[in-house]
Design a protein around this nucleic acid. Structure first.
Lengths: 182, 182, 182, 182
DNA sequence: TATGAATGAGACTTCATTCAT
DNA sequence: AATGAATGAAGTCTCATTCAT
C-alpha cells in the first residue's frame, strides 16, 4: 500500500500502472491480486487510510481542557497549513479529490469520513466553547483548509506565513463569538 | 468546445474519449483535429476560457464606487457560493484542478490566470478600501471559495445558506480592518 | 508536380501528405484532384518523368561519333557519380526504388523504362564499339551506378573521387575487350 | 522477430501493421510490447540482425590462406549474386535501404555495420593480397553487389549467369593489380 | 504463496479522398 | 476552376486483469 501510495503521488491514480506499483512493491503484478482484487480496491484502501488519519486529527482535540482549546487550535493551524503544503500529503489529497468526483465507491468513503470528522469537531467545539452556529463555522474552517491545499497548487508564490497569520485571526474571530461591528 | 466541455463534465478529461466528444459535437473524430491538434489542446482551450472567465469576475469590481465596494462584494458572495455549487461549473473547475496537478501545460495556464486575478483584486481592494495586508486577505478569500467548491463535493449535506452567512461575516471582519479582541 | 517531388524528397512518398503537397503547390487539397485522380497517380507521374530522364541520358550517346564514344563515356562517369550523390536526385531515386518494391503500377513503369534504356545502350555499344557480350557489361555498369547511389546512403564517408577513378578503370577494362590475365 | 521479418517482407515495414505481426507470431498485439517497446524497435532489431549477418559474411574470409583468397572470393561471387536475387533476403535488404533514408535510428545502425564490414574487408585484402588502393576497390565491389540487388528488382529479365561471369572478370581484374592498356 | 507472460479492448491520432459551395 | 471542411477506417500503443506454472 505504501508502494501504491508512492506511485499514485508520482503519477496519479490513473497514471500509475499496476506494473509500476508491483515494481515499487517488489512484487509481481499478479501477486498484488492476492491482497487486492482490483486496482480500485487499492485506491479505496488508501483513501480509507488517509481519510481516517484526518478524522483522527480532529479526535485529538477531545482530550484538551476547555480552557486551552482555543490556544491548542490556533497552535494547530501552523501544522494544518504545513500539511496542505507538504508535497506528498497534498498531492495525495488532491488525487483523492479528483477520484471522489468520478468514482462512486471512493465518494462514499470520503463522505462517510467527512461526516464523522464534522460531527466530532462540532461536538468538541459545542461542549468546550459554547459558541453559536458551530456547524457553519466548522464548515468554514474546513473550507479554509481544503482551499489552502488548492491555493498551494494554483499559486506557487503563495506567502504561507502571512496566510497562516490571517487564518489564525479569522479563527479567533469566529470562535470568540464576537459580532462584527460593520 | 462546448461539446467537449459537456463531455468532460460528464466523464472527466480522461474518461471522455475523442469519439464521444466527436459524437456530441456531431462531427467525425478526424475533423476535430482541424480545430485542435491534440486532445490536450482542447483541454487547454477550455481551461483558458474558464480561467479567463474567473479573472473577468474580479475585473467587474473595477467600476464600482469605493463607498459601495464592500456592499457589492458581500452581495457577490451569494453568487460565488452558488457557482461553487453549480454542478456543471464546479465539476469542470475540479477537473481543471486535477489536471493542474499532472499536466505542466495546464498548470502554466492556471498559474498565469491566478496571478492575474490576484493582482487585479489586490489592486481594487488597496485603492478602494485601503486596508492593510491585502494580499493575504485576498488569498484567504480565494482559499475560502475554492474550499467551498470542495466542501460541496465532499459534504453533500452542506448547509450553503448558513455557510454563506458565515462567509459574509468573515469577509466583513477581514475588510473592516477590525482587530480581534481575543 | 514539382511541389509534390519536393515534398516526397523531404518526407518520402508516404510521409508526405496530400495536405503538405497542396500547401507547397499553393493549392487546396481538393484542387489537386483536378489534375490527378489519386495520390498514386502523382507518384506515377513523377516516376515516369524521372525514369524518362534517365533514358534520355542514354539516348544522348546516339549522336556521338564511334571513335569518341569511349572517351565521352568516361567523361560522363563524373557526372553519373555526381548525380548519385546529389541529395535531391538520389533521394528521389531511392524513394522510387522502395515504391517499385511495393507498388505494381510503379514497378511496371520502372520496368518499362529500364528495358528501354538497356536496349538503347546495348545498341549504342554494339554498333559503335563492337565488343562481345554487351548486355552483361551494360548490366554491370547499371549495377555499378545504382550501387553507388546506395553506397552514398549507407556510407557517408565514401571517397567519391577515388571511387570515380576506379569505376573509370573498370569501364575502360570492360569496353576494351581485354582479357584478364589471371 | 521472424514473424515480423516475414510480415515486413510481405508488406513492407510500414505496410505491415502490428496486428498482422501479432497474428503471424500467434500472439496478441499487446504482448509484442513485452519484447519490443516500439514498432521501430522491432525494425531496428531486424536491421541489426541483418546487418550483422552481412558483416559476418566478410569476416569469414579472415581464415582463408592468402594463396587461396582470390579463388575463394570468386567462388563466393555466385553465392553473393544468388543472395541478391533471393526474394526474402533481397526484399528485406531493400526495405532496410528505404528505411535508412527516413529513419535516423536505423541509419545509424546501418552506417555502423557498413563501416565495420568495410574495415574488415579492407584489412583482409590488404594483408592477403597486397593490392594498392584497396578501399576504393572494396567500395566498388560493395557498389556492384548492392547494385545487383537493385537490378534484380528493376530488371526482372536480368541474365544472372552472364552477369555473374562478368562480375568475376571485373573482380579478377581489380584484385590482380593489372593496369588497363587503353 | 508467487510469478510474469499473455490478453484484447480501447485510447489518440493521421490521412487520402469527397463534395457542397 | 477552386476551396477546405468533413469523413472514417486504420494505425500504434497502453493497461487492468487472468492463469498456467
Amino acid at each position: 500500500m505504501n508502494a501504491a501510495a508512492a506511485c499514485f503521488v508520482e503519477r496519479g491514480f490513473h497514471g500509475a500502472g499496476m506494473a509500476a506499483i508491483a515494481k515499487k512493491a517488489e512484487m509481481s503484478p499478479g501477486h498484488i491480486y492476492h491482497y487486492f482484487s482490483t486496482k480500485n480496491d487499492i485506491i479505496a484502501a488508501i483513501v480509507e487510510r488517509e481519510s481516517a488519519a484526518k478524522v483522527a486529527f480532529f479526535k485529538a482535540f477531545c482530550d484538551v481542557e476547555p480552557e486551552n482549546i482555543l490556544q491548542v487550535l490556533l497552535d494547530k493551524v501552523d501544522e494544518g497549513v504545513e500539511k496542505c503544503a507538504d508535497p506528498f500529503e497534498s498531492i495525495l489529497s488532491r488525487e483523492i479529490l479528483a477520484e471522489t468526483q468520478r468514482n462512486r465507491e471512493i465518494a462514499q468513503i470520503v463522505h462517510r469520513h467527512h461526516e464523522d470528522s464534522l460531527k466530532v469537531f462540532v461536538d468538541i467545539l459545542t461542549s468546550k466553547l459554547g459558541v453559536e452556529d458551530v456547524e457553519s463555522k466548522v464548515n468554514c474552517m474546513k473550507a479554509m483548509f481544503s482551499g489552502i491545499m488548492i491555493q498551494v497548487l494554483v499559486n506557487p508564490k503563495l506567502d504561507r506565513v502571512a496566510l497562516t497569520a490571517e487564518v489564525k485571526r479569522l479563527i479567533k474571530f469566529m470562535l470568540s463569538g464576537e459580532k462584527s461591528t460593520i
